[in-house]
Structures are given as C-alpha cells and as structure tokens.
Write a protein that binds this DNA or RNA. Structure first.
Lengths: 137, 137
DNA sequence: CCTTGAAGCTGTAGCTACTACAGGTTTTAT
DNA sequence: ATAAAACCTGTAGTAGCTACAGCTTCAAGG
C-alpha cells in the first residue's frame, strides 16, 4: 500500500527549510528534533515529519519564542488534548515580553533619532551626541 | 590647593551607577574602563572620572549600542577633536539596526496578538495557535 | 590591639542560540 | 576507480554579562 516515504539527507532538509545544517544538528542535540534514522555510514535521513517539526520550530523562533518556550509548545502539540489553555499561557507570556522589548526599542529609536538630528550639520568641536552621553539627564 | 579627590571602592561605584560589580570588573577586563588605582591590599579605588566614564557607557548601552560601538564612541570622546562626523556614523549605523529590530518586533507583536486573540475563548481540542505554527502561511 | 563580618579579590564556568571550524568518513557522479 | 561533494563528531567561539568558589582585605566595635 504505502510507498515508503522519501527520505532526505540533512542538506536537503536544510535547503527546504532554510535552516542551517549546524542548527539542525544543534536542535537535535538539545532535544527539539528527534534523532533521525541513519544510513549505514551514519548520515542522517529525514522524513516529512521532521520537516514539519522543523518548520514549526522555525516559525515559533521567527515570532521570537525562546527555545524553552518552543520546547513547551512542541510538548503540548505532541501530547494531543486540551492544550489550548497552556498554549495560551506561553503565548501571552511571550507577547508581554515582546511588548516590553517593543517599548524599550521605541524609546531608543526616538532618543537616537533626536541625537542624530542634532549631530547632523555639526562640525562642532564638541559633538552634541557625545555630550549628551556624558551629561546626566 | 587641590584637595585630593575622594576615592570610592567598587561597591560604592556600583551603588552610584546602578551597575553590578561584576559588570564593572568585566568592563575593565575588556578595556572599556581603565584599570583603577589599588589599595595596598589590591582593592580597586575609583575617582569621579571613572564614574563619568561608566555612566557614559551605561547610557550608551541603554540606547542599545553594542560594546564595540561604545568602545568607538569612547575613543572618539577621548581623542579631543572634530569627532562629530565619526560619531554620527556610529550612531546612524546603530539607528538603522534599531529600526530594523523595531520593524521585526512590530510584526511579531501583531502576529502574536492575533494568534492569542484567536486562542482566547477556545477550549478546543486543537489549539488554533499550534495549528498556525504547523501550517505554512 | 584584636576580632569579626562585610566587602573585595581572581579565575572559571554558565547563560542563549547559534556558528564555525578541524580533521576525518561516506556518498555520489563520472 | 577515483574525485568531489556532502556528511560526520567534537570542540571552541560569538555577545554581554552573571554566578559561583575559595580566598584575602578592610573597617568598625569592643
């Protein structure tokens, strides 16, 4: 019935996911990806399942989830069941972190932009940007 | 004439700047702070100059400048002269980085917020957030 | 002066999330 | 059969700290 699923080497998985080979091996080492089948010579061979899982990891990482949270999400995804509440907790927590970072970066952008604006046009002996960093408030 | 300037131990410098002791020593190790005077017993003693310099570093770091850029800014600040153009280059470069990160984080925030919104209220067997991470686009 | 507790010292290892080798083996294409 | 590409393991490096362990010194009270 089932045609044996096509296996790919780590390089193919890397190409198809855009994830570097070293990173794939790293994810395996830290237990995010299961150890795949091996050829007689020891080369890794992956099925489509690994590809889906790696894509999941990469999407979560792309949203900034730390690896620990990704691990948690994968566990919840693996264990079928009413995971929604726990998933939400992880996501809400991360969203809060993201918003905090966002607030920080917005401030940085504003202050930097102002500093640069003041700097621009100045061939002054004393750079106002340097002064700003030296003088409190 | 000049009353010898009051010296402080590393703990006092730490308290006055809000910078952890270990971090101060770290900055010294990597050459951002000059090696201070020492007591006979080997304890570090700092003057007001060190305080100003550390404050400068902390403000630059607070604006997200990487340590390498901080080093560059300090060099320019040290070497008196028309540093403005070079300072501006460093700052503009950093501002660009900050804006890139800002754009990334804004996307993250939006997507995450949407995901969480969909998750909320769901005691579904299949969490939509997990699904979203599993299914491409 | 002596003691004691706080504060300081050095050096090393750990953290996140990879990335980059070196030095070898296997696979694949010719 | 050979040669090049791909793969293997293991280790070390990146940024920017932070946290010990195991000791020494300093300052204040008695």
């Amino acid at each position: 019935m089932a045609v044996p699923p096509p296996l790919m080497a780590i390089g193919a998985l890397s190409r198809r996911t855009g994830c570097k080979i070293e990173t794939i091996r790293y994810y395996e080492r830290i237990g995010l990806l299961p150890a795949p089948a091996r050829s007689r010579g020891g080369h890794r061979h992956y099925g489509e399942g690994a590809l889906k899982r790696l894509d999941f990891i990469l999407r979560a990482r792309g949203l900034g989830f730390p690896l620990d949270s990704v691990r948690g999400l994968l566990d919840l995804a693996d264990g079928e069941g009413r995971s929604c509440a726990q998933v939400e907790r992880i996501a809400v927590r991360h969203l809060k972190d993201v918003r905090n970072k966002l607030a920080d970066i917005l401030v940085m952008e504003k202050v930097l932009a102002e500093m640069v604006a003041e700097c621009r046009g100045g061939t002054m002996p004393d750079c106002p940007l340097i002064e700003a960093l030296f003088n409190e408030d």
